[in-house]
Nucleic acid binder design. Structure first.
Length: 744
DNA sequence: AGTTTGGGCGGT
DNA sequence: CCGCCCAAACTT
């Protein structure tokens, strides 16, 4: 503007105005927004996505509201340090709701705001205009030198006047070089191809399913929350097979009818192709897909589709929560109890809770779905903060499996074996009927502990307080906390004895060994996350099992997730007590959830299956609830137990994550924090959680248990500590890991 | 997060 | 006395 005025003839140059600056959130770990000069003529409102210089590199940031991230005693920036915004990207701005959401998440997780923004702008290629697709078409005379390959290529132009280069080469069965040769000869010409057609639209009424009366009633209620178009949280609660998915699909349909976008969050989406198929059957096309396995080009297309509104429904892993939907009208969090919703590194957030926050800020309903709701969600439902819709029965009419406890004190296996006779018998009977059996043990590898028979030496991780787990297939000992790994030695490193090392306890590999010995003719499939071949192989195996392949499936917790195994009739939980003995305050809850999910895989379609729990504690409330099938008794007992425990306001229980570059520093700071101000302003620091102390990405971490009347108090306490108290030693960072009752 | 800076120490 | 390595500081 100043320039325009100055350039007009006959006018005095306008007095030099101080150059305008704007705050910009930069994608680095700093506490405040940085100021940048706005070039003359550039129009910038809050939310504009810009490219800016930072040090000697160029980064992507977003213009932000002034004042939010200035901090208390912010001193003005030295004007000589101010640099100019380089470029405005041609994408819609981050809208005001999204900016408030980013601010909120940053405050809550104690993460630098720019790092939260980074999760939103994590596809930098999506900001650049899409390069036009290049195709080829006939442009000139046939080449002087004609070959068979060239002829095949040219013939294809009778079908279609323009082709993509690779598509043409593939269709003709020639190498791309042949096409290049024809371009060089002037026979073919490169032309821009029309842009790819926009993503197909899911149709709300493509294929309405017949719902059971219970589902129908639930769907009606849940659809009404979408129609209200304001914030609410609904827990959709029903046993495995009750048909929760069909019910929340109706909510998605309602969002579509009302012209709004919808997001469905799933844990570990990479393994749930079955879900995508069900979606397609209901809505006529696949939804947008967002998770770490989506290839870069597809990511770009989805991100753009989301922000320009052409993608209406996204199904994704937790990170999909940070996609910039302009018209979001519903979030469904499926399997809301699943710990995979928690991100532990970088910005530590819980996607289920942040979904509730996003709904609150933007004013739309959130649906939490689970057969085994988390205690905090159940509490919120019981106290009326969340609505609760219960689906009582299995929609298909199939019964839940009968669960039996095998008392290992009396009916346990012989020495050196891990499967009780009763379980082995049940597996044998299943195989004889042509059914599948699943042996579940949530422990990867061969044996969780290796020790020396001669001197008693135990193999421990050098960095964590954890035992090294033997993986016999790979011949290594590895730490499941930090990934440390060493070849299994021949001799004991302590006393030097050879062949004295003994494996103690079972992992899935060892169970597979025993099953193979008992059932030499059975086809045995072992599934664990460290399986060679990665998620692609895993997905294929799961699909094959669902299709009836394999007789005995031996797996870790990933078999608990999402797949229907119609032929599966017997589930054996090899160590039902595993996890109950840890110091984790959520041990009982996690065990109940995991075992319910695993046994729920049995007998889902025609006829009930059977589940066997190998336990030394058949009278434990968790085992009793699982055996009786009385979920309510579990929730009642657990809620009451937490009320009575040393940490009465149970769900305001939080753990702080203290991370630092080395173990003494991290542990020391956690202890110091617990000692210096253990009870302050309603916050009770209970002390460092028990080991193991883990090392993740080279940083040691220690959990510190805390409780308070209101989760916001914990926030306030920590922020006060960080601002005024004994500030963390260099290199120590705090993060909050909280599953609270409420935020607002 | 990624890059630059600077201090401590080992070799000469 | 110089170089190398790691940790700390800085980026507007």
């Amino acid at each position: 503007m100043a320039n325009q005025t100055a350039s007009l003839p006959g006018l005095e140059p306008a007095p030099e105005e101080p150059a305008a600056t704007v705050p910009v959130l930069v994608p680095v770990a700093v506490e405040t927004a940085y100021s940048y000069r706005v070039p003359a003529g550039m129009h910038l409102g809050p939310g504009t996505v810009v490219q800016i210089p930072l040090g000697n590199r160029q980064v992507v940031g977003a213009v932000w509201e002034p004042g939010i991230w200035e901090g208390g005693g912010a001193k003005p920036v030295d004007p000589s340090k101010l640099r100019e915004i380089l470029h405005v990207f041609d994408v819609p701005s981050i809208d005001e709701r999204m900016r408030r959401f980013i601010d909120w998440v940053a405050r809550w997780t104690m993460a630098p705001p720019g790092m939260v923004l980074r999760m939103v702008l994590r596809v930098p290629e999506a900001l650049e205009p899409e390069p036009p697709l290049k195709g080829v078409r006939l442009a000139g005379a046939p080449p002087e030198r004609m070959t068979k390959a060239r002829a095949r290529v040219l013939d294809l132009f009778e079908e279609n006047p323009s082709w993509s280069k690779t598509g043409l080469a593939t269709a003709a069965g020639v190498s791309p070089g042949v096409v290049d040769g024809l371009i060089g000869a002037g026979t073919l010409q490169i032309v821009p191809l029309p842009a790819a057609p926009p993503a197909p639209m899911p149709e709300a009424d493509w294929n309405r399913r017949d719902l059971s009366p219970a589902q129908d009633k639930a769907a009606e209620e849940i659809t009404a929350t979408v129609a209200e178009r304001r914030f609410s949280v609904t827990l959709l609660d029903g046993v495995t097979g009750a048909g929760k998915t069909e019910v929340y699909f109706e909510a998605v349909a309602e969002a579509l009818r009302r012209g709004r976008q919808a997001l469905v969050l799933l844990p570990e989406i990479a393994l749930t192709s079955e879900f995508l198929q069900r979606f397609e059957e209901r809505f006529g096309c696949r939804p947008g897909e967002w998770h770490s396995d989506v290839p870069p080009k597809q990511r770009v297309r989805l991100w753009r589709g989301v922000i320009d509104g052409s993608v209406r429904v996204v199904v994704g892993a937790r990170s999909a929560l940070f996609l910039p939907f302009p018209e979001l009208g519903l979030i469904v969090v499926d399997e809301e109890h699943d710990p995979a919703y928690k991100q532990d590194d970088r910005v530590a957030y819980h996607a289920r809770d942040m979904a509730v926050v996003r709904g609150h800020i933007a004013g739309f309903p959130v649906i939490l779905s689970s057969a085994t709701p988390s205690i905090e969600t159940r509490h919120n439902a019981d106290t009326g903060r969340y609505r609760r819709i219960e689906l009582p029965d299995r929609a298909s009419g199939a019964a839940l499996p009968d669960i039996h406890a095998i008392d290992m004190r009396r009916g346990g296996p012989a020495r050196g074996r891990w499967l009780a006779p009763a379980l082995t018998r049940a597996v044998g009977e299943a195989l004889a009927r042509g059914d599948q059996a699943l042996l579940f043990l949530n422990r990867r590898g061969y044996a969780p502990l290796t020790l020396c028979r001669s001197c008693g030496h135990r193999f421990e991780c050098p960095d964590c307080s954890a035992w090294l787990v033997e993986h016999r297939f790979r011949s290594v000992l590895t730490c499941h906390h930090c990934g440390f790994s060493m070849p299994t030695p021949e001799a004991c490193p302590s006393c030097g004895d050879v062949d004295s090392l003994t494996a103690c306890g079972p992992g899935v590999e060892r169970i597979a060994e025993e099953a193979a010995a008992d059932f030499p003719d059975a086809r045995i499939i072992v599934l664990s996350s460290d399986m060679p071949g990665g998620t692609r192989r895993l997905r294929a195996e799961l699909k094959a099992i669902a299709g009836g392949e394999g007789d005995i499936i031996i797996g870790t917790q990933l078999v608990a997730k999402g797949h229907n195994f119609p032929k599966l009739k017997v589930v054996g939980v090899v160590d039902a007590d595993l996890g109950l003995s840890t110091a984790d305050p959520r041990a009982a809850e996690r065990t109940f959830q995991l075992i319910s999910q695993v046994t729920g895989r049995a007998g889902r379609r025609d006829g009930a299956g059977v589940g066997y729990l190998q336990t030394y504690m058949p009278d434990h409330p968790v085992m009793r609830a699982l055996v009786s099938g009385d979920r309510e008794s579990f929730y009642a007992t657990e809620l009451e137990a937490r009320e009575r425990s040393a940490m009465p306001p149970f769900a305001r229980l939080a753990s702080l994550l203290v991370t630092g570059p080395d173990r003494p520093l991290t542990e020391g700071f956690a202890r110091e924090l617990a000692r210096a101000a253990p009870h302050q302003d309603g916050v009770h620091v209970l002390g460092p959680a028990d080991p193991p102390l883990a090392v993740i990405r080279g940083r040691h971490r220690q959990r510190l248990l805390v409780h308070a009347d209101r989760s916001a108090d914990i926030q306030a306490y920590l922020h006060r500590w960080l601002a005024a108290g004994p500030v963390p030693k260099k290199g120590v960072r705090l993060a909050i890991d909280i599953e609270p009752l409420s935020f607002m």
